[in-house]
Structures are given as structure tokens and as C-alpha cells.
């Protein structure tokens, strides 16, 4: 099992539904977010290109946050999902500093919080909240170990990139371009 997510930047309109759906699903306090939308513009009028994409924790195969965690709170869970064990977290922020994607924040309750790929939904066979809500269906979630999954197929047929590959983290969030 190797869970991964893909974002089709050809379809994303940057509406931020993924952000608010995550907040209400996971009780993320207002003012904080586990996912976010980025807009990247290139070109000079009228030759322009705009890329919109929904971003979150990359659930890296080689996660610096897990390596930097002094208490073992940050860990790999089933399917490669990178998680934080709240009760072990001392809020030292080492993981926040080590993450090249700025995917973590300190919850007002004192522990570090981040995207879980909604593993509580995934275990019931549901998609993560952001994937399930997206009006453009630009978000995909699935198992890369299964060669017949939609995720595996997408990465075979579509051009894609990953974010900050030079950090060597082996990220599992794929941007379809």
C-alpha cells in the first residue's frame, strides 16, 4: 500500500473548497489550515499562463519531519501516510522547520497538526474530504502499489511534476500539468 494524491492543475480553479472542507471535517480551528491553494503566474500581457493547485503535506517517502522528530511523534503510518501522534508531540517545531513544504502548524492545543490524508475516512473506503468535495474533480487519491488504480493510471498517461524534488524527500503529491 502506498497512498498518494494528485492535483490536476488543468482543472483546479483555486476555489479553496478543499481548505474549508478539510477544516470542517477535521475540526481545524479557523485561522489554521492543513491544505491551501497556490496561484503561480507567468508571462507578460497578453501571453500569460496561470497555474492553480491545491497543496498539502506531501506524505514523503523520505520525510525530513519524521527524521527530525525527537520524540517519535512524527511517524509513518499505514500506506506511507505521515502522521503526528498528538500525545507524544512536545510542540518543539523541529518538524515544522525541516518541512520544505511548510505543511505543518502548531495547533492551539499545543501539538503539531497536519494533513492525515483523512485516514479515518480512507479506512471506511471513502476519499479524503478535500477529494470528495472538489467541484472540479481535480483531486485524486489512491494506491500507487496497485497498478490498476486510477492514481497509477493517471501517472502513466499524464505529464506530472512534484514539488521541490531537489529536497530529496520523495514526495507523494503529484501535480498533473
Amino acid at each position: 500500500m502506498r497512498y498518494a494524491m494528485a492535483v490536476d492543475s488543468k482543472k483546479c480553479v483555486g476555489c479553496s473548497d478543499c481548505v474549508v472542507a478539510c477544516q470542517t471535517e477535521n475540526n481545524v480551528p479557523i485561522g489554521y489550515a492543513r491544505d491551501w491553494v497556490r496561484e503561480i503566474n507567468h508571462g507578460i500581457y497578453p501571453e500569460l499562463h496561470t497555474e492553480l493547485r491545491s497543496e498539502r503535506c506531501n506524505h514523503c517517502d523520505n520525510a525530513p519531519c519524521v527524521r527530525s522528530c525527537p520524540t517519535g511523534a512524527s511517524h509513518y503510518a499505514e500506506g506511507g501516510i505521515v502522521k503526528v501522534a498528538e500525545e507524544k508531540c512536545i510542540g518543539c517545531s523541529a518538524c515544522i522547520i525541516s518541512c520544505p513544504y511548510d505543511a505543518r502548524y502548531i495547533h492551539p492545543k499545543g501539538y503539531v497538526d497536519k494533513c492525515t490524508f483523512c485516514d479515518h475516512r480512507v479506512k471506511d473506503g471513502e476519499d479524503p474530504a478535500c477529494v470528495a468535495v472538489c467541484p472540479t474533480k481535480c483531486l485524486y487519491f489512491g494506491d500507487l502499489d496497485d497498478p490498476n488504480s486510477e492514481m497509477s493510471t493517471l501517472l502513466r498517461v499524464r505529464k506530472y511534476k512534484t514539488l521541490i524534488p531537489e529536497a530529496g524527500t520523495d514526495p507523494q503529491l503529484y501535480i498533473l500539468v
Binding site: D17, V19, V20, T24, E25, V133
Partner: peptide
């Protein structure tokens, strides 16, 4: 009240609410 989601039978939303509908809470 915790969250609002779309009704899969609904032709206006096809079970997917927009950010405003999701944020209706």
C-alpha cells in the same frame, strides 16, 4: 452542526458542495 456535504442525488451539485456551501456552517 459540524459540516455540510452534497446530496449525491442532486443535479445542481452532484454531491459536491462549493466552498460557500461547505462554509455555510
Amino acid at each position: 452542526i459540524k459540516k455540510i456535504t452534497g446530496n449525491n442525488l442532486d443535479l445542481n451539485s452532484n454531491g459536491r458542495f462549493c466552498p460557500r456551501g461547505t462554509g455555510g456552517v
